[in-house]
Design a protein around this nucleic acid. Sequence first.
DNA 1: GTATCACAACTCCTCAGACAAGCGGAGCAC
DNA 2: GTGCTCCGCTTGTCTGAGGAGTTGTGATAC
Lengths: 226, 226
Amino acid sequence: MTLRSIQPSPLVEQAAEQLRAQITGGAWPVGTKLPGETTLAASLGVGRSTVREAIRALAGEGLLQPRQGAGVFVLAAEPRVDFGDHLRKAAIADVYEVRMMIETRAARLAAERRTEADVAALEAALDRRTRAARRSDAHFIDADIALHTAVVAAAGNPVLTALFEQFVPALREGLTALVAASGRADENLGHTAHAALVAAVAEGNPERAEALVSEEIAATTLRRLA
Amino acid sequence: MTLRSIQPSPLVEQAAEQLRAQITGGAWPVGTKLPGETTLAASLGVGRSTVREAIRALAGEGLLQPRQGAGVFVLAAEPRVDFGDHLRKAAIADVYEVRMMIETRAARLAAERRTEADVAALEAALDRRTRAARRSDAHFIDADIALHTAVVAAAGNPVLTALFEQFVPALREGLTALVAASGRADENLGHTAHAALVAAVAEGNPERAEALVSEEIAATTLRRLA
DNA sequence: GTATCACAACTCCTCAGACAAGCGGAGCAC
DNA sequence: GTGCTCCGCTTGTCTGAGGAGTTGTGATAC
C-alpha cells in the first residue's frame, strides 16, 4: 500500500483547484468573464476573501486577470507547463538522451563558431573545475555544470543556451545522487576528457568536440547504471 | 513620441512586486521565513488582506509557500523562466536552428523505434495534412504541426515530446506569418517530402528520415529568408 | 541527565462588514 | 449622432474577530 502525504489543504487551495478545473476543463474558455466574487463565494460556500485569494493565486499562475470594476477574466486555459518541472519528473534515461542530443550538437557548433571570449571563458571554467575537485562535492558539481554550460554558450545560440539551462537543475540532482552513491574518486579522471573537449573547441575541431561530449555523457550514463 | 499604457497598478501588485524584488534580489534566500503578515503589512504600509493576496500571487508563481502555523517560506529565488516565452521572444533563426537539431535526431530515433501504433498515427496525420491543404490556412498549419509532432512522438521519448511541444506556439506563429506573406501555393509540394518522411520512418530508415527532415526545415528557412 | 508532556506564543486561515474606486450601460440633453 | 451624467455592478482595500496549526519552552516524571 502506498501512502499519500496528507495535506489539510486550506480552503483557498481547494477553491483555486475548483476554479482551475473549470478553466482547464473548458467550462470557462479564454476570454470568459467569471461570476462576481460574491456569487462565487456563495456557490463555493466560502467567504469572499477566500475567493479573492484563490483568484490571486490563479492570476499568479497566469490563468486569470482581475480588472477592477470590470470583472475577472480567463487569460489562458492551461497552466504554463514548465519544461523544467517536466524534466524533474521524467525518467533519467530519457532526460540524458535529450541532453546528449543537445550537447553533442552544441559542442559541434561551439567548435565552429567560438570567439576568443568564448575560449577564455571555457579555459576559466575548466580551471575552476580542476580546482573545485579538491573542494566539496557541491562545489565540484557546480563547476562541472558551469563548464558544460560554457561549452553550450560558445555555440552562440541564445535559444540553445536557455534550453540547456532548463536541464541544469535536473543535472545537478542527478550528479549529486551519482556522487553520493559512488563517490567521485575517479571523477578527477574526467579532467583529461574535459580538457580535451575545451582544446577541441578552441582549435575548431567540430567532429572531435562532438565525439568527446558523446563519450563523456555515455560514460556518466554507464556509471549510473552500474 | 511613444505612448505607454497607463496602469494604476493595484496595491496588491505593488506589494507583490516589492516582495518579489526582495526574493530575486537575494535579500531573502531560498528557505528564508518571511516576517509575519502584520509586520509586512505595517512595513509596506498596506492592510493585512493586501499582503495576503500578494503572498498568494507569489505562491501561484511558485516563489513562496505559506504553511499554516509556521509562516511563509521562500521556495525559489527565480520566477520559473518559461522556456516557451523565451522561444517567442527569440530570433527566428536561432529557434529554427535548435528545432532542426531536435527534429532531425527525433526523426532518426523514430525510424529506429517506431511501433505499429506510431506508424498508424503518422499515416493518419499525413492524411489529415493532405486533406487540410484544401481547407483554411489555420487548418493546414495545425495539421502540418500535428504531423511533425507525431514524428517526434514516434521517437518514444516523453522528454523529447514535451520539448517539441514547447516549440509548437512559436512554430505556429512563424508558419502563420510565412503563409500570410508568401501564400502557400507551393506548400502542397511539401506533400511529397512529408509522405517520404513518413515512409522512411515506417520502413525504419534512420539516415533517410533524418535527411528528409533536415531538407524540409532548411527549405522552410530559405523561403523565410527569400 | 533524559525523555515526555502540557502549554503558551506565534503563525497563517477564514469570515463578515464596510467603504473606496473603477467600469459599463441606460437614459437624457443637445 | 454626440456627448454628458447617473446608476448599478464589479473589484480593491481595510479592519476586527475568532479558529486552527506549528513550534519552542518549561515543568514534570523517570
